[in-house]
Every structure is written in structure tokens, then in C-alpha cells.
Design a protein around this nucleic acid. Structure first.
Lengths: 198, 198, 198, 198
DNA sequence: GATGAATGAGAATTCATTCAT
DNA sequence: AATGAATGAATTCTCATTCAT
């Protein structure tokens, strides 16, 4: 499994290798040699697919952020109007993505800081859109009286931080299933917003 | 302020510089030259205070973990027996340390992975002791019926993760005071454990 | 204008791009990628028009040296037998070429050294033919008593060096016209050979 | 002679090696490895003496330009007031430096273009000071009627270009002595300015 | 003729660390 | 304790060139 050269596409192999390397060793700890070796590709070949090491990370994070947002937005299109159901659906989808893509979720939070100012700002904006999504739901709930928290912004941040943490300990062979975790964290979120039980 | 050579003690200057550099650029992103420059010390002098770059990190993390644990334990010695009060006190102390030492708190979580196996395991054990502290309080509360959560272990992890996140966004010149934040997070923790209001 | 792909002929575009790149950045400073980009051609296509980077330079220098020599020789076919007129005509033609082709003239002198021994020697021979041309005129004049210099070889070299220098500062939008410069340098040459005024 | 490690001073060995390498292969053609090898020093050690390859060149050119200017100015302090004598002295000193330091003189003219804008501009200013020196003498002569040229600026440039060319062909074992060459070029300069013989 | 991927050598530079003084 | 020079391995990235399509 140390060689992805037979993958249909070298490009995919390179980005998969970069993802793995960044997740495992961090942006500065992973070397281009390392990535090339994992991808089963010669070092200089990496530069066909990205102009620089930073670019590899940027592309990875752009896709991760976009997918994370999309997955969450998509879940909401199927949820009814109740803030309680919407928050539950959003958290489950958000957590679901993390459980399905722990490496992406990990580097999205931990390696962002090593990017140049421009790229970083643009990616932070993408992340802020997810935050706005949750914030919207929570404030709706507060206005409707279904959520009782008086710190909606702080709670939003707490919910997202708490979920992001999953990427640090989740292992696929663990004892908790994807749905267990998603459900558990949905409960935590409802607790944090002070959701009134019917 | 880029030069700490006038600090009473070169050793302190070196460790303060290392802390700053690791917090800002990560373990692999910070170079020994960088640290020396920040400390106002000549490169080779760093090796009078630590045998290696890893050692600098180990020392910093040992102290950070110890202090974090101590601060939390100390707060509990002054709290009465009620799980609710104990959890509140523990969270406030735990958050208080993070707010007072955001760089230490940051690297304690993010740079641990770059250590060798031995050092890392020993430091994780230290962190587990804090976790055990919270876990003990929460399970006491559950047994006593004051806390209603049915996922005490998960909640413990959620609380600690949520708190650790503070180190990423907290800035001393922000609009929230140390006590505001501590109080807010204590509320979040109580919500998560399902603390029954009197 | 950075793309010459629409030029009637890709070959010309490639050599024009190589000329520009070598003149601007020097042989080692210009990369094949650079040349391809300027030519509006894909990198590997360069190798349809030359076997190597050195070959590009050799072809350019061969043509430049040949054209420079031809232009000078041609001018002499229209000049009368007087050494004074012949020298004037030769210098004007020699300078004329430089003014019309500053990049060619520049690399002919500065980049020759980067060629392999064989190519370099053959090109130096071509340059020597121009030198012989001037030398012949000057020695004729000395023998005839019209030129008074006692260092004919040294003067020949001085004249040619002086003219070659034009390529370094001449810009088409400058205040001196092609004819101004040619006339001026013809005067300098006559002064150097010690031409006796009638 | 390929190893200068026994030179009293590594710094000098490094700069001497860089000079040699740049003169022989050009700035881009000479590699840092190459320079280190010539200096008898380990590659990474070069960076103790210069921050970059460009810096090596800058330092070399700064010193060369300064020395060239100083030598010329110094010669003028010993010359009487006659423009003719002054020009003779200046040319002899200028040429003398070139003959004594052909490598310095060579790179001063040919490698300047590879520097960054800032460094290049500052070095060109230094070169302009030499040009101003010659220009002053020549215009003095023209005003005094001893020099008859009507293109003083052009002649200045021609004189300097012609002299700079010496660095390209002069070899210490050649048949012309330092004084022969200096005298010859002084004569050329006097011819170019149209100096009136007594 | 044209293309894009591939390659291995080599580029400049930085790294953590050591050592003699 | 402090210094500055030294070292060798590793870093990111670019090079000229080749090849299958």
C-alpha cells in the first residue's frame, strides 16, 4: 500500500499521498520526498500537479472545506423547518463528514496556519460559511424560543470545536459506529443550545 | 521586544522564545536559529539549556501539563462536595489556565505528535490524569443523579476538546474577559452533563 | 506580445524567443521553459527545432556572425579604393548591424564562452574573418601612408571592441539615430587609425 | 591550487574562489558547489560569508568598482593640470587596474546584469562615478581647446568600453607588458578626444 | 508536428548539531 | 557560559532532456 503508481491517475495518487503525509506528520514535517514516495512517483514529478508544497495543501483544503460545507448544506435541504431538527441534521452531517474523512478534517484545522496570508484568508472565509450556517440555525431557535442559550455565538464555536476534535481520536476500527458518534454529538449540541424537550 | 537577552536569566529567555516560536510556526516550522534570534542568544548557546530541539519542546510540555493539572487540582481543593460545584470549579480553573497561557495550551495539544514515542507516551499520561479528574467528577454526578448524561466518557472528552479550542482564538485584547470565558464554558459543561437545575 | 504562436512559422518564433531570452538572461540564466513560454510553444516542441539548448545558441550565433560579416563585406563592394572611405564604410556597416540587431550583437560577444570547444572555435573563426577585414583595410592605409597608427592590430581590436559595446547601451527609443551613431563611430575609427585629413 | 583551505582566511578563499568561478563560467554557470570546491570549503559553509550567491557577486563587484575608482582617482592626484596629462594618467591607471585584475574587471561588466534591481542600480552608480571622472577631464580639455572632439560624452563611453575590452583578451603571459598596454590605450584615448599635439 | 507526463541530476539554501577556543 | 566557524544531511524546487501517444 506504499505505492499508488497503479492508481488510475497519478494526480489522485499524489494528492492522496499528500493528504496522508500532512495528516500524519504535519505540513512542515512531511517532505516532498515523503509525499513522492507514498505516491509511488518520482520527486520532481510532483511539480506537474502542484506548483509548490503549499499548493498541495491549498488544493486539499479547498476541496475539504467545500465538501464539508456541501455535505452539511445538503443535509439541511432534507430537514424540516424546526430548529431542533435542523441542528440535529446539521451536526450529524458535519460529524459524518469528519468520521468519513478524518485526515481531511484534521488538516483543515491544524495545518491551515502554515499557509500564506492570501490562501489562508480565503480558506478561513470558507470555514466561516459553515459557522454562519450553524449560527443561523441556532439564532433561529433562540428567536423561536426553542433554544434557551444566551451565548449563541459562543455555543456555535463550542459545537464546531467539539466536533472538530473527533478527527483527533476517531479510528475506523473503534468501538463507536459513525451513526453512534453522529447521534451522540447531535445530543451534545442540543444540550449546549439549551434545546427545550417536548 | 524581539530580544530577551536582558531577561534576568538566559534560560528563561530561551524557553520563552521556544514557546513563542513553536506556538507561532509549529515544531517543524520553527528553527533553532529562529529560537536563538528570538531569545537574543547565539545559536550554539541553545545547547547549554537543552540537548536538542525536541528537548526544548518536551520541557515546555512537561511544565505546561503539570501546571495545567495543578491549577485544576488546586481549584478543587477549595470546592465543596457537590458535583455541580466541583465541575464548575474544575472547568473555570482549566479554562483559566488556557486563557492565561494560550501558547502553552496550544502547543500542548498540537505539537505533542512530533515527539518521540517515549516522551509522547509520558506526556499523554499526564494529560490523561486531567481527563480522569473530570471523568471522576462527572461520574460522581451521574451516580448521584445530579448529572443526567448517559455518555459520561464522551462528554468528558467533549468538554476538554471544547475548552482546548479556546487557545486557538483567544486573544488578550479581545472583548471577553478571563472570567467571562471561564463562566461561559462552565455553563457549557453543565449543559453537556445534563446538570439538573435546583 | 508574449506569445509568438501566431507567427507564420513556429521555427522562427522559437529562435526569436531564444534570442530574446539569451540576450535578457544569458545562456545559463535562460531556461528552455522560459524560451518555450516566450515562443508560445510547448516545452517539448523546442526539440523539433534544435537538438539541445546549446544548439539554439549555436544556430543564432552562426547566423548573427554570418550576417554581420556579410553586411560589412557588402558595404565594402560599393566603396572606392581609398582606405579612408573603406574604413568609414566598414565601420558604418558594422555599427549599422549592431544597431539593427542589438540582441544578436550582444549574445555574439557575451554568450560565446558557454559553447563547447568545437562550436566555439568555429564561431571564433567567423569572427576572426571580420577582424581580418578591418585589419586589411587598416594595414592598407598604413602602407599607403593615409593612416599613421603604429599599432594597427591593437587599433583594430579597439575599434571592434568599442563598436561591440554599442549593443550594451543602445535602445531603439534613444535620442541618437542609427545614422548618427554610425557616423560618430566612423569618426572614432578614423581618429584611432590616425587618418590624415586632406 | 584547487584547494585554498590553507589560506590564512577562509573568507578570502571563498571570495577568491567565487571571483574565479564567476569569471570563468559566468554568474549562472558557476554553482555554489563549484565555488565551495575551489575554495576548499564545504558547501554549506559558504553561507557563513554571504547570505546568497548574489551576495557573493555583489561584494566582489562593490570592491572591484571601489578599487577601480580609487586607483584612477589616485593617479589623478599626481598629475598636473593639463587635460592631456590628466587623461593620459587616468587611462593608464584605469587600464592598469584591468591588467592587474582582469577577472574583477571582467565580471564588473559582464555579470552586473544578473543582480537584483537594487544592487544593480547602486553598482551602476559607482560605475557612473568613474565615467564622470573621465567626462570631466575630457570636457575640461574641450573647453580649453586642447581636445577637439565634438562628441565628448560619446568619446568617454568609447574610451571606457575599449578599455573594458582588455579584460577579455589579456593574459599575463602575453607578449605585451602592463605598461605597453597602458601606454597604447592612452594614445588611443588621446586620438579619440582629438588631442592637439604640441 | 504537437502534447503532457516522466525522469534523474543538480540547483540554492537551511537544517540541527558539534567543536575548538 | 559564550562564541563563531564548521559539517553533512536534508530541504524545496528547477533543470535539460526523453518518450509514448
Amino acid at each position: 500500500m506504499n505505492d499508488r503508481s497503479t492508481a488510475s491517475n497519478s494526480r489522485d495518487a499524489v494528492y492522496a499521498a499528500a493528504l496522508e503525509a500532512f495528516a500524519e506528520k504535519g505540513f512542515h514535517g512531511a517532505s516532498m520526498r515523503d509525499i513522492a514516495r507514498r505516491a509511488g512517483v518520482v520527486l520532481s514529478n510532483l511539480y506537474h500537479y502542484a506548483d509548490s508544497k503549499s499548493d498541495l495543501l491549498v488544493e486539499l483544503l479547498k476541496k475539504a472545506n467545500y465538501d464539508h460545507l456541501s455535505a452539511t448544506e445538503w443535509a439541511l435541504t432534507g430537514a424540516d423547518a424546526s430548529p431542533r431538527h435542523r441542528l440535529e441534521a446539521a451536526v450529524k452531517a458535519y460529524v459524518g463528514y469528519i468520521v468519513d474523512h478524518p485526515m481531511e478534517a484534521l488538516i483543515a484545522h491544524s495545518e491551515l496556519r502554515y499557509l500564506g496570508d492570501d490562501d489562508r484568508k480565503r480558506l478561513v472565509m470558507a470555514r466561516d460559511r459553515v459557522e454562519a450556517l450553524f449560527d443561523g440555525i441556532i439564532e433561529d431557535g433562540v428567536r423561536a424560543g426553542t433554544f434557551t442559550t444566551s451565548h449563541s455565538r459562543g455555543v456555535t464555536r463550542a459545537v464546531l470545536t467539539m466536533c472538530a476534535g473527533i478527527a483527533q481520536w476517531y479510528r475506523q476500527d473503534g468501538r463507536l459506529s459513525r451513526e453512534d458518534i453522529a447521534g451522540e454529538y447531535a445530543d451534545y449540541a442540543l444540550a449546549l443550545v439549551g434545546s427545550i424537550h417536548d
